[in-house]
Simulated scan of single mutants.
Amino acid sequence: MRIARFSIDGNVAFGAVEGSSAPGDESTLVLDIIKGIPFADFELSGTKVPLSKVRLLPPVLPNKVVAVGRNYAEHAAELGHAVVDDQGRAEPPLVFFKPSTSVVGPGDPIAYPSFSEELHHEAELAVVIGRMCREVPRERVKDVILGYTCANDVTARDVQRREQQWARAKGFDSSCPLGPWIETDLDPSDLTIQCTVNGEQRQLGRTGDMIRSIEDLVVHISEAMTLLPGDVILTGTPAGVGPLNVGDEVAVTIEGIGTLTNKVIKRG
Protein backbone atom coordinates (compact mmCIF):
# COMPACT_ATOMS: atom_id res chain seq x y z
CA MET A 1 0.00 0.00 0.00
CA ARG A 2 1.12 3.52 -0.77
CA ILE A 3 0.13 5.98 1.97
CA ALA A 4 0.18 9.70 1.28
CA ARG A 5 -0.35 12.66 3.57
CA PHE A 6 -2.11 15.57 1.93
CA SER A 7 -4.12 18.73 2.38
CA ILE A 8 -7.37 19.68 0.71
CA ASP A 9 -9.61 22.63 1.49
CA GLY A 10 -7.48 23.42 4.52
CA ASN A 11 -7.78 19.94 6.01
CA VAL A 12 -4.93 17.44 6.44
CA ALA A 13 -5.50 13.72 6.02
CA PHE A 14 -3.87 10.44 5.05
CA GLY A 15 -4.98 8.44 2.06
CA ALA A 16 -4.19 5.21 0.24
CA VAL A 17 -2.90 5.92 -3.26
CA GLU A 18 -4.73 3.88 -5.88
CA GLY A 19 -4.05 3.34 -9.56
CA SER A 20 -0.93 3.24 -11.68
CA SER A 21 0.74 5.91 -13.76
CA ALA A 22 3.76 6.66 -15.87
CA PRO A 23 6.71 8.17 -14.01
CA GLY A 24 6.08 11.85 -13.40
CA ASP A 25 2.41 11.61 -14.40
CA GLU A 26 0.09 11.11 -11.44
CA SER A 27 -3.01 12.50 -13.17
CA THR A 28 -4.86 9.16 -13.03
CA LEU A 29 -4.15 8.41 -9.36
CA VAL A 30 -6.76 8.76 -6.63
CA LEU A 31 -6.63 8.83 -2.85
CA ASP A 32 -8.95 6.73 -0.68
CA ILE A 33 -9.10 8.74 2.54
CA ILE A 34 -8.00 6.82 5.64
CA LYS A 35 -10.11 6.79 8.78
CA GLY A 36 -7.62 7.61 11.53
CA ILE A 37 -3.85 7.47 11.14
CA PRO A 38 -1.62 4.82 9.57
CA PHE A 39 0.30 4.15 12.81
CA ALA A 40 -2.61 2.18 14.27
CA ASP A 41 -5.37 -0.01 12.92
CA PHE A 42 -7.24 1.94 10.30
CA GLU A 43 -9.90 1.58 7.63
CA LEU A 44 -10.31 3.08 4.20
CA SER A 45 -13.31 5.39 4.13
CA GLY A 46 -14.26 4.76 0.53
CA THR A 47 -14.27 8.51 -0.01
CA LYS A 48 -11.95 9.14 -2.93
CA VAL A 49 -10.34 12.27 -4.28
CA PRO A 50 -8.12 12.69 -7.33
CA LEU A 51 -4.47 13.16 -6.45
CA SER A 52 -4.41 16.11 -8.83
CA LYS A 53 -6.87 17.97 -6.57
CA VAL A 54 -4.76 17.84 -3.41
CA ARG A 55 -1.42 19.14 -2.20
CA LEU A 56 0.93 16.37 -1.17
CA LEU A 57 2.64 17.02 2.16
CA PRO A 58 5.64 15.29 3.74
CA PRO A 59 4.32 11.75 4.28
CA VAL A 60 5.10 12.08 8.01
CA LEU A 61 6.03 14.82 10.47
CA PRO A 62 8.74 12.99 12.40
CA ASN A 63 9.67 13.64 15.99
CA LYS A 64 13.23 13.08 14.79
CA VAL A 65 15.12 12.19 11.66
CA VAL A 66 18.05 9.90 12.43
CA ALA A 67 20.49 9.88 9.53
CA VAL A 68 23.43 7.64 8.71
CA GLY A 69 26.56 8.85 6.97
CA ARG A 70 29.11 6.95 4.90
CA ASN A 71 26.93 3.87 4.39
CA TYR A 72 28.01 3.38 0.76
CA ALA A 73 31.72 2.70 0.22
CA GLU A 74 32.01 4.61 -3.08
CA HIS A 75 30.38 7.71 -1.61
CA ALA A 76 32.66 7.62 1.41
CA ALA A 77 35.64 7.29 -0.93
CA GLU A 78 34.60 10.24 -3.09
CA LEU A 79 34.66 12.42 0.04
CA GLY A 80 37.96 10.95 1.20
CA HIS A 81 36.69 8.89 4.13
CA ALA A 82 37.58 5.33 5.10
CA VAL A 83 34.79 2.93 6.03
CA VAL A 84 36.96 0.09 7.37
CA ASP A 85 39.64 0.08 10.05
CA ASP A 86 43.23 -1.17 9.75
CA GLN A 87 42.04 -4.76 10.26
CA GLY A 88 39.49 -4.48 7.45
CA ARG A 89 36.50 -4.34 9.78
CA ALA A 90 33.59 -2.01 8.98
CA GLU A 91 33.53 1.15 11.07
CA PRO A 92 30.47 1.64 13.32
CA PRO A 93 27.61 3.50 11.61
CA LEU A 94 28.04 7.29 11.68
CA VAL A 95 24.76 8.62 13.09
CA PHE A 96 23.52 12.22 13.18
CA PHE A 97 20.22 14.10 13.45
CA LYS A 98 18.21 16.35 11.20
CA PRO A 99 15.56 18.36 13.09
CA SER A 100 11.86 18.09 12.32
CA THR A 101 11.99 21.66 10.99
CA SER A 102 14.25 20.47 8.16
CA VAL A 103 11.44 18.34 6.66
CA VAL A 104 9.59 19.45 3.53
CA GLY A 105 7.41 17.54 1.12
CA PRO A 106 7.22 16.79 -2.60
CA GLY A 107 7.12 19.95 -4.67
CA ASP A 108 8.18 22.14 -1.77
CA PRO A 109 11.18 24.41 -2.34
CA ILE A 110 14.67 23.81 -1.00
CA ALA A 111 15.82 27.21 0.28
CA TYR A 112 19.52 27.73 -0.41
CA PRO A 113 20.97 28.71 2.98
CA SER A 114 22.51 32.17 3.15
CA PHE A 115 25.55 30.87 5.06
CA SER A 116 26.63 28.39 2.38
CA GLU A 117 28.14 28.57 -1.10
CA GLU A 118 28.25 24.83 -1.82
CA LEU A 119 24.95 22.96 -1.59
CA HIS A 120 24.87 19.25 -2.46
CA HIS A 121 22.14 16.68 -3.13
CA GLU A 122 22.19 13.24 -1.48
CA ALA A 123 19.55 10.75 -2.64
CA GLU A 124 18.56 8.29 0.08
CA LEU A 125 16.12 5.55 1.00
CA ALA A 126 14.18 6.58 4.11
CA VAL A 127 12.73 4.13 6.63
CA VAL A 128 9.50 5.21 8.36
CA ILE A 129 9.00 3.76 11.84
CA GLY A 130 5.48 2.48 12.54
CA ARG A 131 5.46 1.83 16.28
CA MET A 132 7.25 2.93 19.42
CA CYS A 133 10.26 0.72 19.97
CA ARG A 134 13.57 0.43 21.78
CA GLU A 135 16.37 -2.16 21.72
CA VAL A 136 14.80 -3.88 18.72
CA PRO A 137 16.18 -7.40 18.11
CA ARG A 138 17.19 -8.12 14.54
CA GLU A 139 14.37 -10.62 14.01
CA ARG A 140 11.77 -7.98 14.96
CA VAL A 141 13.00 -5.10 12.81
CA LYS A 142 10.37 -5.63 10.11
CA ASP A 143 7.65 -5.45 12.77
CA VAL A 144 8.53 -1.85 13.70
CA ILE A 145 8.74 -0.46 10.16
CA LEU A 146 5.67 1.08 8.54
CA GLY A 147 7.30 1.51 5.15
CA TYR A 148 9.75 3.39 2.99
CA THR A 149 9.94 6.69 1.14
CA CYS A 150 12.40 8.81 -0.84
CA ALA A 151 14.62 11.38 0.85
CA ASN A 152 17.18 14.01 -0.09
CA ASP A 153 19.77 14.69 2.61
CA VAL A 154 20.57 18.18 1.30
CA THR A 155 23.95 19.27 2.65
CA ALA A 156 25.86 22.54 2.89
CA ARG A 157 29.16 20.84 2.08
CA ASP A 158 31.39 23.86 2.73
CA VAL A 159 29.80 24.34 6.16
CA GLN A 160 30.24 20.64 6.92
CA ARG A 161 33.96 20.92 6.16
CA ARG A 162 34.45 24.23 7.92
CA GLU A 163 32.57 23.47 11.13
CA GLN A 164 33.58 19.79 11.29
CA GLN A 165 30.23 18.84 12.75
CA TRP A 166 27.00 18.53 10.88
CA ALA A 167 24.21 20.25 12.80
CA ARG A 168 23.99 23.38 10.64
CA ALA A 169 25.32 21.79 7.45
CA LYS A 170 22.58 19.15 7.35
CA GLY A 171 19.93 20.56 9.68
CA PHE A 172 18.92 23.85 8.11
CA ASP A 173 15.30 24.51 7.14
CA SER A 174 14.21 22.53 4.03
CA SER A 175 17.29 20.27 4.09
CA CYS A 176 15.22 17.07 4.35
CA PRO A 177 12.70 16.62 1.52
CA LEU A 178 10.62 13.45 1.98
CA GLY A 179 8.02 11.82 -0.25
CA PRO A 180 6.04 11.47 -2.31
CA TRP A 181 4.39 8.79 -0.13
CA ILE A 182 5.15 5.76 2.04
CA GLU A 183 5.32 2.36 0.36
CA THR A 184 4.45 -0.34 2.90
CA ASP A 185 4.81 -3.43 0.69
CA LEU A 186 8.42 -3.37 -0.40
CA ASP A 187 11.58 -5.42 -0.10
CA PRO A 188 14.21 -2.69 0.35
CA SER A 189 17.24 -4.97 0.11
CA ASP A 190 18.28 -4.22 -3.50
CA LEU A 191 16.48 -1.26 -5.09
CA THR A 192 17.71 1.17 -7.72
CA ILE A 193 18.19 4.66 -6.28
CA GLN A 194 18.97 7.63 -8.49
CA CYS A 195 19.13 11.40 -8.48
CA THR A 196 18.74 13.79 -11.38
CA VAL A 197 19.28 17.55 -11.53
CA ASN A 198 17.43 19.33 -14.33
CA GLY A 199 16.90 15.92 -15.91
CA GLU A 200 20.61 14.99 -15.89
CA GLN A 201 21.53 11.88 -13.94
CA ARG A 202 23.91 12.56 -11.07
CA GLN A 203 23.59 9.52 -8.80
CA LEU A 204 22.80 5.92 -9.61
CA GLY A 205 23.20 3.09 -7.13
CA ARG A 206 21.51 0.19 -5.42
CA THR A 207 20.45 -0.22 -1.83
CA GLY A 208 22.11 -3.63 -1.93
CA ASP A 209 25.44 -1.78 -1.82
CA MET A 210 24.83 -0.44 1.69
CA ILE A 211 27.64 -1.25 4.11
CA ARG A 212 25.15 -1.59 6.98
CA SER A 213 21.74 -3.09 6.23
CA ILE A 214 18.47 -1.62 7.39
CA GLU A 215 18.33 -4.30 10.09
CA ASP A 216 21.81 -3.28 11.25
CA LEU A 217 20.81 0.37 11.41
CA VAL A 218 17.55 -0.12 13.32
CA VAL A 219 19.26 -2.38 15.85
CA HIS A 220 22.16 0.05 16.29
CA ILE A 221 20.02 3.19 16.62
CA SER A 222 17.36 1.67 18.86
CA GLU A 223 20.05 0.47 21.29
CA ALA A 224 20.54 4.12 22.17
CA MET A 225 17.14 5.78 21.81
CA THR A 226 13.43 5.15 21.66
CA LEU A 227 12.00 5.41 18.16
CA LEU A 228 8.49 6.81 17.86
CA PRO A 229 5.79 6.27 15.23
CA GLY A 230 6.60 8.52 12.29
CA ASP A 231 10.30 8.81 13.06
CA VAL A 232 12.49 8.53 9.98
CA ILE A 233 15.86 6.83 9.45
CA LEU A 234 17.93 7.98 6.45
CA THR A 235 20.10 5.10 5.27
CA GLY A 236 22.92 6.86 3.44
CA THR A 237 23.60 7.95 -0.12
CA PRO A 238 25.40 6.30 -3.04
CA ALA A 239 28.25 7.96 -4.92
CA GLY A 240 27.75 10.92 -7.22
CA VAL A 241 26.75 13.68 -4.82
CA GLY A 242 27.18 17.10 -6.37
CA PRO A 243 26.19 20.76 -6.47
CA LEU A 244 22.78 22.35 -6.44
CA ASN A 245 22.20 25.91 -7.57
CA VAL A 246 19.28 28.30 -7.30
CA GLY A 247 16.77 27.38 -10.00
CA ASP A 248 17.76 23.70 -10.19
CA GLU A 249 15.11 20.98 -10.06
CA VAL A 250 16.36 17.92 -8.19
CA ALA A 251 14.57 14.56 -8.30
CA VAL A 252 15.16 11.43 -6.24
CA THR A 253 13.69 8.23 -7.68
CA ILE A 254 13.66 4.88 -5.89
CA GLU A 255 12.49 1.67 -7.50
CA GLY A 256 9.11 0.56 -6.15
CA ILE A 257 8.37 3.88 -4.47
CA GLY A 258 8.32 6.79 -6.90
CA THR A 259 9.91 10.19 -7.42
CA LEU A 260 10.47 13.08 -5.03
CA THR A 261 10.98 16.38 -6.84
CA ASN A 262 11.97 19.76 -5.38
CA LYS A 263 13.24 23.05 -6.77
CA VAL A 264 16.05 25.10 -5.25
CA ILE A 265 15.20 28.73 -4.51
CA LYS A 266 17.04 31.65 -3.00
CA ARG A 267 16.36 31.89 0.70
CA GLY A 268 14.25 34.97 1.38
Rank of each mutant, 00 (worst) to 15 (best):
H81K: 11
D86G: 00
R2H: 09
G208H: 11
P50Q: 05
V54A: 11
K35A: 13
K64E: 12
K170F: 12
D190N: 15
G24Q: 08
P62S: 09
H120I: 02
Q201L: 15
S174K: 06
G205E: 08
T28G: 11
E255S: 01
S116A: 14
D173W: 02
V68T: 15
L227G: 04
H75G: 09
L61G: 01
A40I: 02
P180I: 08
C150F: 01
T47S: 05
E91C: 13
N152C: 05
A224G: 10
D25N: 15
K35D: 15
P238R: 04
Y112N: 05
E183H: 04
K142E: 14
W166M: 13
S102L: 08
E183T: 14
E215P: 00
K53D: 15
D108P: 01
V84E: 11
G147P: 12
C195S: 07
T235A: 06
G36W: 10
I221F: 03
E122Y: 05
V65H: 03
N245D: 14
V232S: 03
E118G: 00
G242I: 02
C195M: 10
I8A: 14
L29M: 13
Q164L: 13
A73W: 03
N152S: 08
E43I: 00
L44S: 03
G19M: 07
E163P: 03
S175C: 14
A126V: 13
R206A: 10
K53E: 15
S174W: 08
Q201K: 15
F96V: 12
V141A: 06
T235S: 08
L94C: 10
V144Y: 03
G199C: 11
T47Q: 09
S20R: 13
D248R: 08
